[in-house]
Each structure stands twice: as structure tokens, then as C-alpha cells.
Design a protein around this nucleic acid. Structure first.
Lengths: 207, 207
DNA sequence: CGCCCACTGTTAAACATTTCACAAATAGCA
DNA sequence: TGCTATTTGTGAAATGTTTAACAGTGGGCG
């Protein structure tokens, strides 16, 4: 397997997993069936799966339980990850109460804000700390993942501190593209840009 | 201009625009300078811009104000868009109070939920209506854009109603991939999948 | 006006991803 | 065991995107 894995194959793997969850009551599923459930082509399903290994049985298809276990192990969602949350505004608070985190093995273990009115409050069982304590706390707890939900202004500084504290992956909601070294995994969720994409599509199709 | 525009070029256009906002005090900017501000290559900057037209002056670069106006017009963020919000849970509420919407010409004009405890409440000046009123309200106000922030369970049904009511673009936060006809623009922001991508990157790099 | 310089716009090449088509492999059955 | 029906896994082709290289264009200046 010298082939490099296309970035886009990883989220598709997640979608295959979801489709498998809906396929109760059967032992095997074919790439054809998986393609119908996910709206990808059968060829792509097979190709994608072979990027990560060989999971199928010719003539039968993929053993559903085995494939589910394989995907969970590839994605790493069978492990537990401690997460630091920086920025407890509207979005940060919503993320704190998002139930999906724990289902995927993510546990928010500390939260930070620079707003004095928020520091000291307890949300979802987590006490909000001053951002000045960020580095010490992240190092002490050996946190590897951080979620940045601050304003654009503070975000790069927060990211720098996080990286200096040993964080290896960042999910960034602030509307900037922070600079990070290649060793750090950065994923941007940028609402402004998604809105502009929508506006573009609408403008194009409706004049 | 027979070339088709790569999907990924549109969000890059948004990022170029952001860089231009930071470039006060100059009249012209070169593709080289833009590339440094955005971390793309200069060739890509030029290529991307020509997908949408010819904006530069050889020997000088791009007129900043003119390019800003052009991008705004291409993206359609100079227009005003009325938006319907479905699902006023933690995330929906956070989105309602997100200030970025109005800056980009998006105005949430109605909000819906099926939870009786939320219906009738007023959030950010918007009175939450029962989801049963969705179709009538969207038709009456001729809303073209909807944000879906419901749970996975209700999402497809909500999307069907929205499309039946004339909505042309949907920003979906629910963790499913709704089926929509090709005429409708669907954009998924899927937190679960982003988390799994992060987990994958971490698993790969740290064993 | 004509030359030079800086920079764009574009053609061609490189690279990446997806689709196609089929050989190889397994299960099931006689 | 040998044959057939399925369905995988994968080379090769098609498609799509990015990068590289440079011809052409406009502006500034003598």
C-alpha cells in the first residue's frame, strides 16, 4: 500500500460507519448496498476501504461488525481523548453541552475564557479558568486536543500558547486561519466562509 | 472562460477578501503579497482570480478597493438574504446570537422548534414558532436560505418541508446527510465528522 | 514616443482523485 | 471436487486541480 490516502477519504469513512450503524439485522453488506446508503459510487466505497486495508470477502461483501470495528480503530474513536476548550461564549457553551463529544470518546476536561464575568463559573461540570492558566493546565493534564472558540482577535495567541503547551490537534472555530507548524493538526470550521459559499451558490443560480 | 470553477476556489476567494481587509493604506497589491498573507501560492492566487474575471493590471497588481468590490459581488455578500432557523437548542441559540450573520448580509427572520418549552420564547428579537408553521411562514416570507440545527432524527423531514416551501440553500448542522434535489444547495457542517477526522490524524501521528 | 520593468493571465505539465472495467477470489451447491 | 454466481480489489483511463513557466500587457520614465 504505497498509495497516499486522499484527505477526503477520511470523512467518507465516517459516513460509511454511519451507514453500517443503520444496517442492523444483516451480517454482510456489499459495496453496492453501502453506495446506495451513502450516495457514493460502489467503486469509491471499495477503493476507499482498500486505502485502509482489506476488509471484504469476494462473493459476500463486508462483514458488518468486523468493518465497524475496523473503522473505529482506524479513526481512533475507540480511544479516549482529553480536550481543552478555549472561549466559552455562545458557541463555546453550545459545544460544551454537545453530547456527541463523549460518544466519540472526547471529554472536555478544562475550559478557559478571558472574560472576568465567565471565569469561575461552572458549566456542564467544568469550572471556567482564566486564559492565563491555559499553558499550566494543559501541560499538567497532558491535553492533546484543543477547541478554539474565541473571537478572531485572540485566536492566534491562544493557538500559539496551545502549541507551546504540547497540544497536537486543534479544532478552530474562530474566523481566522491560525499559523501552526506542520506537526500540529489544524481543522478550521469557519462559519463566515460557509455563509459566503452559500451566498455564492445562490447568487450564481438565481442571477 | 470555458473552465469550470473548482469548488475549493470559492472559500479561497473569501480568504483573499479577508487578506484585502487587512491591507489598508495601499492602493495595489500583487499576487505575491496576497499569497504571503493567505499562505497559498502566488500562482494559485492568480489562477483563482481569473476563474472569476480579470481584475489585475500587469506591472502593478490588483487594485485593492476594486478587487474587494468584485469579490463581494461575486460572492453575493452585497445582497441581503433572509434566513430561517430550524432548531433552537444550544447550537441554534448560539447561531442566533452570532454577529457574523448580519455583517455578511444574512438576517434571521424566523426561528422554529418542536419543543413546547421553547415555542413562544423570544430570542434575539425573534419569536420561536412551532415547526408545524414552518411551511406557511417560509412561503409567506419568501425565505430562500435555511439553517438546520435540529437533532439527526428530525432533520430529513425538516429539509423536505423547507424544499417544498421554496428554500434554495440549506446550511445543515444536523449529523446526517439529507437528500436534496440538485437544484438545492446543501452545505453540511458536521461536528461529529470533524471530530473523527481529528481523532484519525492524532491516531496516525501518535501511533 | 519607445524602451524597460513588474506583474498578470494563460498554456502546458505535474499531480491528485475518481471512475471504469475486469481478473482474482470466495462461497455455495450439485 | 468442480462449476457457477457474486463481489472484491486493483491496474489503467478519465477527470479534476494545482503548480510551473513564460508570453504578453500596461505603466512609468527618459
Amino acid at each position: 500500500m504505497l498509495n497516499k490516502i486522499p484527505q477526503a477519504a477520511v470523512p467518507r469513512l465516517s459516513l460509511y460507519y454511519r451507514a453500517l450503524l443503520e444496517s442492523r439485522g444483516k451480517d454482510y453488506i456489499s459495496s453496492e448496498e453501502l453506495s446506495k446508503l451513502t450516495n457514493f459510487t460502489a467503486a469509491q466505497v471499495r477503493r476507499d476501504l482498500t486505502y485502509f486495508g482489506q476488509f471484504g470477502t469476494p462473493g459476500k461483501g463486508y462483514a458488518i461488525e468486523g468493518l465497524k470495528k475496523a473503522i473505529v480503530s482506524i479513526l481512533g474513536t475507540d480511544k479516549n481523548w482529553d480536550v481543552a476548550l478555549v472561549g466559552v461564549g455562545n458557541l463555546g457553551t453550545a459545544l460544551l453541552s454537545y453530547r456527541g463529544f463523549e460518544q466519540q470518546g472526547f471529554r472536555v476536561v478544562c475550559a478557559f475564557d478571558s472574560d472576568l464575568r465567565k471565569i469561575g463559573k461552572t458549566l456542564e461540570g467544568i469550572k471556567v479558568q482564566d486564559t492565563t492558566e491555559l499553558e499550566a493546565a494543559v501541560k499538567a493534564k497532558n491535553v492533546q486536543i484543543a477547541i478554539v472558540a474565541t473571537s478572531a482577535e485572540g485566536a492566534q495567541k491562544v493557538v500559539d500558547i496551545l502549541i507551546g503547551s504540547g497540544v497536537k490537534a486543534i479544532l478552530n472555530f474562530a474566523p481566522i486561519r491560525p499559523h501552526v507548524p506542520p506537526s500540529v493538526n489544524l481543522l478550521n470550521i469557519d462559519l463566515s466562509i460557509e455563509l459566503e459559499r452559500l451566498a455564492y451558490f445562490l447568487t450564481k443560480s438565481s442571477g
